[in-house]
């Protein structure tokens, strides 16, 4: 365990040419520097995501340049744009098809809450109603720097994940579900309108 190695001893050993690490550190170091995003975009946020992947901002500096056209090969889903109710079941299905460990970045106001279309009849009020989200990026659309920041946040989250014990990473916990029910098209709305196992809206108590 990383915590059990004395930092002073470690740097002393490194100076002598001995590199000490733990399985967990090595595993997380490899994972956090090769996050392969799923290649799909939904709206204008996708343009910013493309800019992030292009040479000016270059997400390859963080090991995330390998955009995969198949969910079977992807680690990260960047929900970049407005999720319409007609699109939501497909997003959940794509998420279910991704192998564990998998992460979700909810990019932009629409993917977080429905954004400017929140009061409309056809836009999902946030993708976190159906799938768990790791990092939210506000903005309309967020700049590439914001996406890079979210990417670095995700890297630090991966780096802090434990392999064993009570607080081990979710994908190592057999009891944690890795697939979530796909909503179906109802006569007036999606059925169900939100997955209660995933979606916990803030409860606002107003004093009368």
């Amino acid at each position: 365990m990383t915590e059990q190695i004395d930092e002073g001893l470690r740097s002393e050993l490194q100076r002598q040419g001995v590199w000490v690490t733990s399985m967990q550190e090595l595993y997380n170091w490899g994972r956090k520097n090769s996050i392969w995003p799923l290649q799909f975009g939904l709206a204008c946020c996708a343009i910013e995501m493309i800019a992030t992947a292009a040479s000016r901002y270059d997400i390859a500096r963080f090991g995330g340049e390998v955009f995969r056209p198949s969910p079977r090969q992807a680690d990260l889903m960047i929900v970049a744009g407005t999720v319409t109710k007609k699109m939501a079941p497909q997003i959940v299905r794509l998420y279910n098809q991704m192998p564990d460990p998998k992460y979700v970045i909810s990019m932009g106001a629409c993917a977080i809450s429905g954004g400017p279309f929140k009061q409309g009849y056809n836009v999902l009020k946030g993708i976190d109603r159906y799938i768990p989200v790791d990092v939210y990026i506000p903005g309309c659309p967020p700049r590439p720097e914001a996406l890079l920041h979210a990417f670095m946040e995700l890297q630090s989250k991966i780096d802090s994940q434990k392999l064993t014990g009570q607080n081990r990473a979710e994908h190592l916990n057999v009891a944690q579900p890795s697939e979530f029910p796909v909503p179906s098209f109802g006569e007036h709305d999606l059925e169900p309108p939100a997955n209660p196992d995933v979606f916990h809206p803030p409860k606002i108590e107003r004093q009368s």
């Binding site: 109710k85 007609k86 056809n122 009020k125 098209f185 109802g186 006569e187 709305d189 939100a194 809206p201």
Partner: peptide, 24 residues
């Protein structure tokens, strides 16, 4: 635009969208 199972016509003036209000 809407899915095939949808029965309403959203641009009609008497359309009422599903009551899924969230904190504003």
């Amino acid at each position: 635009l809407m899915w095939d199972e949808f029965v309403d016509h959203p641009m009609r003036k008497d359309y009422r969208d599903p009551d899924d209000y969230e904190y504003e």
